[in-house]
Nucleic acid binder design. Structure first.
Lengths: 151, 151
DNA sequence: CAGATGTCAGAAATACTGATATGG
DNA sequence: CCCATATCAGTAGTTCTGACATCT
């Protein structure tokens, strides 16, 4: 390591390794969820609804990092498959809070177990303390980009 | 924190925070590169060619985590803008190795500086040693998913 | 022959933009 | 009035799938 002259190997760039890890995780999740007839977006939607019942479509979209339009299609598909219910009329304001059906709860439990296995495989080279630290550091990094540009 | 019964908060899931960080980085890079008239895919392509001249289109695609078809469109666009050159006939096999033009080198240098600032902002809450550790851990995590499922 | 590559075409999912309407 | 929401429509960029030819 000479003097950090500004030339950084691609594999040493945080952005690159972050993208690499996220891409690998995405591929692994796709493969794991395919036998369960769920896409990653559908799984994320189900998991969100299961953990925070009553979320609006816009909140689901933000939580799953997709557009409102895409999430709208996802929720409709899950409704058609009987995994999600949404009231037809708004009880408060314009929000139509989504909830899991009984089958939806079964499905998300199975999917969650499968995804958890993938996450554990990804974390397998790290010690338990390093795993926890990784979660915290990634959270801090995301917050540093979202909140504090000039603030 | 009671007993870790298998119910994990969404914000504690590695997959979620990883996606969160990657998504925030993507958004920040988009905003940073827009004034330079570059998309993230175009920047990744230029950076790859700059650091490893002579890469084939398929190698570029793998390196940028996109499909060969998408990378093909990206390279063509960069060729039309005079940032990239590719021989019309293959000198060896079927590969048409891409290289940066003089203007391409200028453009990628400016873009690289801008992206590096974003990366530094993302890493700002972390100490120097923690930054290096994060890079290594992410690399290990990606490798754990790519290489070693059952093999 | 197997394997990697470059290329083309169609289908599908997603995102972006703009517009409209409703409710706080 | 301002803002967030839900929804619809059109456009565009990306991926996936399959296919074919070329070269090692």
């Amino acid at each position: 390591m000479s003097q950090d002259s500004g030339v950084t190997e691609l594999e040493q760039r945080v952005g690159y390794v972050l993208k690499q890890a996220a891409s690998a995780l995405r591929t692994a999740m796709d493969a794991t969820l395919r036998p369960l007839d769920l896409t990653v977006a559908q799984y994320a939607c189900l998991e969100l609804i299961g953990q925070r019942p009553g979320l609006s479509n816009a909140e689901l979209a933000r939580g799953a990092f997709v557009s409102r339009q895409s999430m709208n299609l996802v929720v409709r598909g899950l409704q058609d498959r009987g995994l999600v219910t949404r009231p037809t009329t708004a009880t408060r304001g314009r929000v139509l809070p989504a909830e899991l059906t009984a089958e939806g709860r079964l499905r998300v439990r199975a999917a969650s177990r499968a995804v958890r296995r993938v996450e554990q495989q990804m974390l397998s080279p790290l010690a338990s303390s390093a795993q926890q630290r990784l979660r915290e550091d990634l959270t801090d990094c995301a917050a540093a980009l979202t909140n504090g540009p000039g603030r």
